[in-house]
Simulated scan of single mutants.
Amino acid sequence: MTDAEIELTIYGSQKGYPEHLRLVRFFDEEQGREFMFLTNAMELTALQVSGPLQESLADRAFLQVAQAAPQNQEILGNN
């Protein structure tokens, strides 16, 4: 995870939003994907910015395992 303070440098963008922004990057190893969050919430930590997505990904992984469990039980049998 990375956290950087950035500013827009293109004239039109900089004129429309002259304040600094924050770029938080989170790499999900399971999916092999990088997610980028652009925010002006400087008071939050990087974990708080990316946290909802991380929780969602964890919930999705849990549901996939839970859905596969009954299939695995049939293969292994009831002990």
Rank of each mutant, 00 (worst) to 15 (best):
M1F: 14
D3I: 04
D3G: 06
A4Y: 13
E5I: 11
E5Q: 12
I6T: 04
I6D: 03
E7Y: 08
E7G: 07
T9C: 00
T9Y: 00
G12Q: 00
S13G: 01
S13W: 00
Q14K: 13
Q14E: 00
K15D: 00
Y17T: 00
P18S: 00
E19Q: 10
H20S: 10
L21E: 01
R22L: 02
R22E: 02
R25Y: 07
F26Y: 15
F26T: 04
F27E: 08
D28S: 07
E29S: 14
E30K: 12
Q31T: 13
Q31Y: 08
G32C: 05
G32A: 02
R33Y: 15
R33L: 15
F35C: 05
F35P: 01
F35N: 01
M36E: 15
M36V: 13
M36L: 14
L38V: 10
T39I: 06
A41G: 04
A41Q: 15
A41C: 13
E43W: 12
E43I: 09
L44A: 12
L47A: 15
Q48D: 11
V49A: 09
S50L: 06
S50V: 07
G51S: 06
G51R: 06
L53Y: 08
E55D: 12
L57G: 05
L57M: 09
A58N: 10
A61Q: 12
A61K: 12
F62G: 01
L63E: 12
L63K: 12
L63G: 00
V65E: 10
A66V: 05
Q67D: 11
Q67Y: 07
A68T: 02
A68F: 08
A69N: 06
A69C: 01
Q71E: 09
N72F: 08
Q73V: 11
Q73M: 10
Q73G: 00
E74T: 08
E74L: 13
I75N: 06
I75D: 01
L76P: 03
L76T: 05
G77F: 03
G77Y: 02
G77D: 04
G77P: 07
N78Y: 14
N78A: 14
N78E: 15
N78S: 14
N79P: 15
